[in-house]
Design a protein around this nucleic acid. Structure first.
Length: 254
DNA sequence: ATGGTGGTCCAACCA
């Protein structure tokens, strides 16, 4: 089973690139973030033609997440239960014996800002929810744009980013608290090349200079860690014309 | 040099 995650930064602009990637990579599940489109406008027919079901949580202009899948989604959950949020950032579904959660975690703008506090509150609500999900679903996969670089290996220049947004102690501690529930960063279950990133700023030729961060993650529950066969980042689409600023990340599970 | 690019949607916000 191949699972993948991609922040597409507008599904309208990136539709052809996503269809092309699905056709070549053939994942069983693909989580998309930053649709920037209302649910009713989502191009369902284009994905159904490739044999994918769609579960969508969209909104106008900002945010928005979707799960595309070979199998029919069951038990679809939209948003974090019992957490009031205008911003559409979470969707979950069950496929056979596996629960998949797709997240677009808030960016947080700058440490100490109002958006940063929203991010930390969001992460606290997420952790409460995931604790409940894990109690019900041993086989849990959490994917998405976490907007957190787990540690300094995931940052092109750790000194430059020390204590800044995506790297601050409180964000990293929140991620560690989530992992401590019984989840694993699938990428780090394997040897990986140094300086492997999933996001590069559009500005200042970030991709060409590999000034990136690894902020797109695929977490697998303890029950699934021994069944995880590979976890990679496909940087190829980031070099396309009119690319998303994020690359797709994927994992293969037995 | 404290910017820069890109998406949404047309002024200003978000990343």
């Amino acid at each position: 089973m191949m699972v993948a995650s991609w922040n597409v930064n507008s599904i309208k602009v990136r539709l052809e690139q996503v269809l092309e990637w699905l056709d070549s990579a053939q994942p069983d599940v693909l989580g998309l973030q930053e649709l920037k489109m209302q649910t009713e406008s989502f191009p369902v027919a284009a994905f159904e033609e490739l044999g994918y079901h769609c579960a969508i949580e969209g909104q106008k202009t900002y945010n928005g997440v979707a799960l595309l899948s070979r199998h029919k989604p069951e038990e679809v959950t939209r948003g974090i239960p019992n957490f009031s949020d205008e911003q559409k950032r979470a969707i979950a579904a069950t496929y056979k014996d596996r629960r998949v959660i797709n997240l677009y975690i808030p960016n947080g703008q700058a440490v100490g800002s109002e958006k940063y506090n929203y991010k930390l509150n969001w992460l606290a609500a997420l952790t409460n929810w995931i604790e409940q999900e894990l109690a019900q679903h041993k086989n849990l996969i959490i994917m998405g744009d976490f907007n957190i670089a787990p540690d300094d290996r995931d940052v092109h220049d750790p000194n430059e980013w020390q204590g800044k947004i995506l790297c601050s102690d409180a964000e990293r501690a929140a991620l560690q608290k989530l992992l401590a529930l019984g989840l694993n960063d699938s990428f780090r279950l394997f040897d990986q090349p140094a300086k492997t990133f999933s996001w590069w700023d559009y500005r200042a030729a970030g991709f060409r200079r590999n000034r990136g961060m690894r902020i797109d993650l695929l977490l697998v529950s303890d029950a699934l860690s021994n069944t995880t066969l590979a976890s990679r980042i496909d940087t190829e689409p980031r070099g396309h014309e009119r690319p998303s600023d994020h690359a797709p990340v994927w994992a293969e599970l037995s």
